[in-house]
Design a protein around this nucleic acid. Structure first.
Lengths: 180, 180
DNA sequence: GAAATATGTCAACGAAACTGACGTAATCGG
DNA sequence: CCGATTACGTCAGTTTCGTTGACATATTTC
């Protein structure tokens, strides 16, 4: 197995505690960043998911609601370009949001073919709740002095605190045991 | 609409060009980070997706292959804890990877109930290809002097270069036009 | 007036998650 | 040693959210 032999010797990941202190940026392979990005994103979308479930909505609804809230007057074409999905996919979730009163459409003024999208008050309130939990995680992560120092510290700080130790423990395992 | 009135005045996002120079870290709201994380992650998983499609695999296969490659001897239970999916979901993709010779199982020695997972040579090769494209993006992003300076610069640098301008243009729009 | 554009919609399909129930082999605890 | 627990596999059905392909309609543009 040539590839496993090519694995570099394990370098140390900053311990979770270091995030509290004003630690520097210890070396960290970009391989580690791949996983940290996975874990950070997993927890990052996990927060809003719990709220959305109460409304019977999913992540697709979240994305639409978020961008319409943040960029009022967005057209369908712009939204499609942002989300990179087909109009059929978009239409399914957009229809839900419109029918249930979270998003409203307005015919474009300069081009009457366009449907400009806006959040209703209810929609803006829900979008605000969703943004809040994500902002809370980000703010908490950025509050760690080490977080701004390096991408890996930032991503580690984005992970749910209870799970940071488990992630660090796992990542400390790389290249160890396990020969077939 | 109380919420839109509460929106802070638009602060400037670092321009895409600034990533090439040794720019400092201009202020950036955590609202911006939410979107940057979305765009960065979208492009980050887009690279391997193209390769996986050639093999008839999806992202679920990628995640399994990645963690088994990186942590040889991983058990099913550990993998379930990492991925946070049900064993039924895991089993579907794992079965594909085993049947097609990318992953092999070994009965645990200390506990014979466990199935220890290992990549075959073919599996390790594919995992390597997938890691390579993601590492390339990460390395390129980290090479930008400004990237290490702040999370927002790092995330912006992770976005596909061709699209950075479009993202910046979009984000510069916040709070502008669009009153109903 | 013809062509292109922006959007909506019907129908079928596929990937990848979910729930709930049940089976089997191995380990553990008394 | 036997019953309970654990680790894993599997059958069956459902949901979310993406896909393709085709076609309709209103509006703008040339």
């Amino acid at each position: 197995m040539p590839r496993s032999a090519a694995r570099p010797a394990a370098r140390t990941l900053p311990s979770p505690d270091m995030l509290a202190e004003g630690a520097g940026a210890p070396p960290c392979s970009s391989d580690d960043l791949i996983e940290l990005l996975f874990f950070a994103y997993r927890d990052f979308v996990g927060d809003p998911d719990r709220i959305l479930a109460e409304y019977g909505f999913g992540r697709a609804h979240h994305r639409v609601l978020h961008f319409v809230d943040r960029y009022p007057g967005l057209t369908i074409a712009e939204l499609l370009d942002i989300l990179r999905i087909t109009k059929q996919s978009l239409n399914r979730v957009l229809k839900d949001l419109i029918e249930q009163g979270y998003i409203a459409q307005k015919t474009g003024t300069s081009d009457r073919r366009q449907r400009l999208l806006y959040c209703t008050q209810t929609g803006a309130a829900l979008a605000g709740d969703l943004t809040r939990v994500q902002t809370r995680r980000l703010t908490r992560a950025l509050a760690a002095p080490a977080a701004a120092a390096s991408p890996e510290n930032f991503l580690l700080a984005m992970i749910e605190p209870d799970e940071r130790a488990a992630v660090s423990r796992l990542m400390a395992r790389r290249g160890q045991q396990g020969a077939a």
